[in-house]
Design a binder for these strands. Structure first.
Lengths: 347, 347
DNA sequence: ATGAAAGCGCTAACAG
DNA sequence: CTGTTAGCGCTTTCAT
């Protein structure tokens, strides 16, 4: 007597082929979408596959194709900040959307706590077809290491050292910050100030540079006393703003390099009895969910972190994920995404 | 002339064995940490491996062991909320910490947007050793589907239907909410109100139940008019609180079912000129980073979402990840993690 | 258009 | 303790 073993024996190409009455090769052709198969064979294979609820064994496939079908999402960030920053999940989400749109089953997200060696081995071990680096600090060697190991690498955010020619995708931080400067001045601020991001992050630097340029274009000065350092947290925005308020000539405008810090700034302002936007105007950066939730709503610079990506088949990790071979060979072009001012109540 | 091909030919067990002068089997034993190998063999294999910078090919290994070494992290959540909620990255991070501590290389995170069939196929295709479900709504069928497909499943959060016996890990939402009720009353509130979470999330229900119980224990009533619905967003907390403030007898205490809503509540209160904690006391839930950043600091109920996990070798996905075979066979015990009140300035 | 056959790199018996 | 021998399930020439 023959017993059907459903649970214990997952369907294989072999079994599907048998049921369909064709060879394993043909079954494989059908299931991997080759064109040169007769109609008859195709339908019977497809039927058999459905009947056996066949799913292709990725390990076996990877073994021969030398592709894993997933891309690493590496967060090179102090633990607390990465996960605390609302910005980061958006990126993850965008990556997801793109990758799955490209027909890849999932994103593999790495973590640096295990230490570079672990990650390196992981990536080099054929686990991933490519790696996306997010929120890089300073001059991290890991991207280079991976690239040297043959893994295509894309950076989210402009690389710190101009020398290392990695393809990247970034928002136009510089241009967006200039927009913020214009807004502040055009609304009447004459003594604008800024709360910067951490010095080792290129996004922070770019935003400061852009803010400087924007003010200059409007003929407004930015003395060093009105540039205070933050680190992208709410608390740092609060503290930096308090420092600003202690000055003899209080600023009448604050550009915070991200929304978190802008929220902290608003709290400090409110507690010191300073009206927003009456006495001090505030502009943030990112257009995080938080920005729409403050009262008054925070005017901010939107970057298309996730919104723009799913619609955009051309760039970023989608190009990587969709065709690792191409990425491996050709250059993936870098892209700078446009930013725009979202005017709410704080200006 | 012989040319060394470093890049194009990744080292295999074969090549390592050859260089070390042993058989492939012995090399394999060494590299997978078997004990029954002579010192001599061990060192020469290790040397050869280092020299060739050998990394084991996971696909090949998976093919034979039928293990992938990764666990799925499935977020069954309305897109916006999952990624907007600061709570969620914490979970991801906790999962990461546990899984990598257990020697697994990474977490595979799934997404439901591709649709259940895709995810199902993915998980059933031998891609993952287990699946962790996060933030389940209502009575989602997917966990059952996966379990039926032979994938061990663990739920983060108590399952909606008591009937389905899935192992889960959850915070003591009920107990924590009772703590919040006690705090409010003990600090002087006599007309406490609550902003609830969405009705289809068990955590929201549990918190409401716990709040009810806590008040009852203090002999304080909770009329239906002081129970308003929110959906865990800042905005909903703001709106719900405004509704509360329009009532004839204003509440003198608000328990929001999460910190986001508590922040919204504080905004509404402030805008209506209501002092916190002077006229109205506020308590949140989660102890999100946001809670420490408000002014005054938000009193809230902390749940050990991530903190407790890495230290705790026994539970949750660590047990899954560390030993999928055991999980597949035996029951993974469910666990309810303790909550505690974090007193800041709003009570 | 289809089948047969040869591995991909690894692990797991099984002998020695 | 070590080597030999089989495959895991799939893709891919190469014939047919």
């Amino acid at each position: 007597m023959v017993t059907k073993q459903v649970r214990d024996a997952p369907a294989t190409l072999e079994s599907v082929a048998a049921l369909a009455g064709v060879s394993r090769a043909t079954a494989g052709r059908v299931l991997s979408g080759a064109t040169n198969v007769s109609e008859g064979a195709r339908t019977s294979v497809l039927d058999a596959a459905r009947q056996l609820s066949y799913v292709t064994n990725q390990a076996a496939r990877s073994l021969v194709t030398r592709r894993s079908g997933s891309v690493a999402f590496v967060v090179a960030e102090a633990e607390d900040r990465a996960f605390g920053d609302p910005f980061f999940p958006g990126l993850l989400r965008g990556a997801h959307a793109e990758v799955s749109a490209a027909g890849k089953p999932g994103v593999r997200d790495g973590d640096r706590r295990a230490g570079p060696p672990a990650l390196e081995r992981f990536a080099a071990g054929g686990h991933v077809d490519a790696a996306v680096f997010v929120s890089l600090h300073g001059d991290d060697p890991l991207p280079r290491t991976l690239r040297d190991a043959g893994v295509p690498v894309v950076l989210s955010g402009r690389p710190y050292r101009a020398g290392t020619r990695f393809p990247f995708v970034d928002a136009d931080n510089e241009g967006g910050a200039a927009l913020a400067a214009h807004e502040l001045v055009d609304r009447g601020s004459r003594r604008p100030a800024t709360v910067t991001g951490p010095a080792d992050m290129i996004a922070g630097e770019d935003r400061l540079a852009g803010f400087r340029r924007g003010l200059q274009e409007r003929g407004v000065a930015l003395p060093p006393s009105r540039v205070v350092a933050g680190d992208f947290t709410i608390q740092s925005g609060y503290a930096a703003t308090e420092r600003l308020l202690r000055q003899r000539y209080r600023p009448d405008g604050v550009f915070a390099a991200n929304d978190q810090m802008a929220v902290g700034a608003m709290q400090a302002l409110r507690e010191h009895g300073v009206s927003v936007p009456g006495e001090v105007r505030v502009v943030g950066f990112d257009d995080a969910p938080l920005a729409a939730a403050t009262h008054p709503g925070l005017t901010t610079v939107r970057q298309p972190v996730e919104q723009a990506r799913p619609r955009d088949g051309a760039g970023w990790c989608s190009s990587l994920a969709a065709d690792p071979a191409a990425a491996r060979g050709r250059r993936v072009p870098s892209r700078v995404l446009p930013t725009e001012l979202v005017r709410r109540g704080t200006t």
